[in-house]
Amino acid sequence: MNNSSTNQSNVSRSGLQDMWNAFMVEGAKFSVNDIPMCPTTTSKTPSKLISFDDAKAIHKREMQRGNRDYKVDGFVHFFIDDQKFDGKRSSIWLYPEKSLEMLKHFSGIIAPDFSTYADFPEPLKKWNYYRMCAFGYWAGMQGVPVISNCRWGTEETWSYCFDGNPSNSMLAIGVVASGIRYLENRPLFEQGLFKMVEQLHPHTIIVYGSANYACFDELKKQGIKVISYPSKTSLAFAERRANE
């Protein structure tokens, strides 16, 4: 091997930038599919869940008040449209340190829920799953309590989509965008859910959205603790009905 080429490969050139946030996975363990492990770093179940966009509004308000040491008892979740936490100006991936400064004011986070829709190209689904686990791992390493987020798609994703989640732990899932409300979509969701339980054996599942479905009743019978948190939309509807 040419010595000059060897030396060049081992020396970082000046001006290089970390375009892929490799710093996030320093020290991480990886699956056979190169997905970084994102452990759940807390045993505490959230008192409530707060969407990332609502957390941003809270942070902006408290900063304007000069309250730089404020604390909010609630976990931040990302079960919202990607553009609200991964847009050009709001991206937690492009501006992770800025996002972290805000997230540290809350009790913890559920690892980000980058979309992996069925009609996405497979490389994009894997990339988004990688980012979900990488950001969650990094936030945990920075002292933010993290609940690992589990997300699956159609059957072909099962070979890698559970790689970054811990076994025998507490996991979070979102059902609002899953289509579980519609009977034709329910079998696919249930198959993925049962596959997750088969592979990961969670003792607790945090559900964003309704858990009033037979599949969750079955998990409860197996001794799994299922804790559901109403979505922002359902809370709004409940408030509207209460005021009528």
Score class of each variant (00 low, 15 high):
Ser9Ala: 12
Val11Ser: 10
Ser14Met: 07
Leu16Ile: 09
Trp20Lys: 04
Ala22Val: 14
Phe23Lys: 15
Glu26Asp: 11
Ser31Phe: 11
Pro39Arg: 15
Pro39Thr: 12
Thr45Trp: 05
Ser51Phe: 01
Lys56Trp: 12
Gln64Lys: 14
Arg68His: 13
Val72Asp: 06
Gly74Ala: 12
His77Pro: 09
His77Cys: 11
His77Ile: 13
Lys84Leu: 02
Arg89Ala: 09
Ser90Phe: 01
Ser91Ile: 01
Ile92Cys: 01
Tyr95Gln: 11
Glu101Met: 11
Leu103Met: 13
His105Glu: 09
Ile109Arg: 06
Ala111Leu: 12
Pro112Leu: 05
Pro112Asp: 03
Asp113Pro: 01
Phe114Gly: 00
Ser115Phe: 01
Thr116Asn: 01
Ala118Ile: 10
Pro121Met: 13
Met132Tyr: 01
Phe135Glu: 00
Met141Tyr: 11
Gln142Phe: 02
Gly143Arg: 07
Glu155Asp: 12
Tyr160Gln: 07
Tyr160His: 08
Asp163Phe: 05
Asn168Trp: 13
Leu171Phe: 10
Leu171Glu: 04
Gly179Tyr: 04
Gly179Phe: 05
Ile180Val: 08
Ile180Pro: 02
Tyr182Arg: 11
Asn185Ile: 15
Pro187His: 08
Phe189Thr: 05
Glu190Arg: 12
Phe194Gly: 02
His201Trp: 08
Thr204Met: 14
Ile205Ala: 06
Val207Met: 04
Gly209Pro: 07
Gly209Trp: 02
Ser210Asp: 10
Ala211Cys: 07
Tyr213Ala: 06
Asp217Arg: 06
Glu218Trp: 07
Tyr229Ala: 03
Thr233Asn: 04
Ala236Arg: 04
